[in-house]
C-alpha cells in the first residue's frame, strides 16, 4: 500500500515536471544549497532573494514565453532568427515574456534573469536580453559585456521607440522580429559614433541615414537672407552723420580718469552637471544584484 502511494506520488511529480517542458518553458528549482548560478557570482544576504526568485532555465532555449504571448510556430520562427543573430554578432540573445514581475522593476528582472542563468558568449558574458513585462507593461532591453558599448543609450532609445507600438497593439511577434532585426542592423553598423544621431529606423527595422532637411534647406535659406540683406544694405548709401571725429583737433585733446571706484562685486557659483551619458556614443551602465555591469533601457507600451 505504501509502495503504491509512493509510486503514485512519483508519477504525479513526474507529470508535473513533464508538462511545463513541452507546454511552455522548462524551469529548474533553485534551493539554497543548489542555487544553479555561475561560480563567479558572490552570494550575499542582499542578492540571495533575487537569486531564488529568478527562474532557472536552460540557457540554450533563448525564447522564454512565460506570458504565453507567442504560438509554438512563432516561437520557432523567432528562435531561428535569434540563432542567426547570435552566430552573426557573437552576442547572446534571450527573449523573455512575463505576466508577473516579482522584482522591483523590469530592469531588475531582466538583469537578474540574464546573470543567474548561463547567458553570455564570452568572458564578459556579452549579450542582450529583451524582456516583455506584461505586469509593468514595459519592454526592457538589458545589455551585458561588449553589448553595452555596442548598444548606446541613444541606440536603445531609438530601438525601443521604433517597436513599442507593436506591443501596445499586441503584435508581439512583429515587435520581437523587428527588435532582432534592428539590433542586428546596429551591429552591422559597428560601434556607435557621433554620426548615430543622423540615422533613423524604418518601419521594417532598417537603419538608414535620415536626410537632414532642416540643415539642407534651413542653412541655405539663412545664408541667402543674410547675403541679400547685406546687398540691400549696400544699396543704401545715405546716412545721417552721427560723429564729428574727423573734425577733432587731436592736439587739443586732453582727457584723464578722475576716479575709478569699485562699487560692487558679486560671485555666483553654479554647480556643474555630472551626467555621464551623452549624445550618440554614450552608454550609461549600472550594476545588477549579481554585481555584474549592465546597460539598458525600457519603454512603456
Amino acid at each position: 500500500m505504501k509502495k503504491i502511494r509512493y509510486f503514485l506520488l512519483t508519477v504525479i511529480l513526474f507529470v508535473f515536471c513533464i508538462i511545463p517542458v513541452y507546454a511552455s518553458t522548462n524551469t529548474f528549482t533553485r534551493t539554497e544549497d543548489n542555487l544553479l548560478i555561475s561560480s563567479d557570482i558572490t552570494v550575499t544576504s542582499q542578492n540571495l532573494d533575487n537569486i531564488l526568485n529568478t527562474p532557472a532555465i536552460d540557457a540554450s532555449e533563448k525564447i522564454y514565453d512565460f506570458a504565453d504571448l507567442l504560438t509554438p510556430s512563432e516561437e520557432e520562427e523567432i528562435y531561428q532568427q535569434v540563432n542567426q543573430f547570435i552566430n552573426k554578432t557573437n552576442f547572446d540573445l534571450a527573449i523573455v515574456t512575463i505576466n508577473d514581475n516579482n522584482k522591483l522593476s523590469a530592469m531588475e528582472y531582466a538583469d537578474d534573469f540574464y546573470d543567474y542563468n548561463d547567458f553570455g558568449t564570452d568572458a564578459e558574458y556579452s549579450g542582450i536580453l529583451f524582456l516583455i513585462d506584461m505586469d509593468t507593461r514595459e519592454i526592457y532591453m538589458s545589455t551585458t559585456g561588449k553589448a553595452i558599448a555596442m548598444y548606446s543609450d541613444s541606440r536603445i532609445d531609438m530601438t525601443l521607440d521604433a517597436i513599442y507600438q507593436e506591443f501596445s497593439e499586441r503584435h508581439y511577434m512583429q515587435g520581437i522580429t523587428k527588435f532582432v532585426t534592428i539590433i542586428e542592423n546596429y551591429d552591422t553598423m559597428g560601434l556607435p559614433s557621433n554620426k548615430d544621431s543622423k540615422y533613423a529606423i524604418s518601419d521594417t527595422g532598417e537603419i538608414y541615414r535620415e536626410f537632414p532637411w532642416l540643415i539642407v534647406l534651413g542653412a541655405p535659406l539663412a545664408i541667402t537672407i543674410i547675403v541679400i540683406g547685406i546687398m540691400i544694405h549696400k544699396n543704401k548709401l545715405v546716412r545721417v552723420a552721427t560723429s564729428s571725429r574727423e573734425y577733432l583737433d587731436k592736439d587739443s585733446l586732453k582727457m584723464r580718469v578722475v576716479s575709478d571706484r569699485l562699487i560692487s562685486t558679486n560671485t555666483v557659483a553654479v554647480p556643474l552637471s555630472t551626467s555621464s551619458s551623452s549624445g550618440g556614443g554614450g552608454s550609461s551602465h549600472h550594476s545588477g544584484s549579481s554585481g555584474r555591469s549592465h546597460g539598458g533601457g525600457g519603454h512603456r507600451f
Partner: peptide, 19 residues
C-alpha cells in the same frame, strides 16, 4: 562649480577738446 564674478565700477572721466 562654475563661478561668475561680476565687478561694477564707477568711473569718472574729464577732458577738454576742440573741434
Amino acid at each position: 562649480n562654475r563661478y561668475t564674478k561680476t565687478d561694477r565700477f564707477s568711473v569718472v572721466c574729464d577732458g577738454t577738446m576742440h573741434y
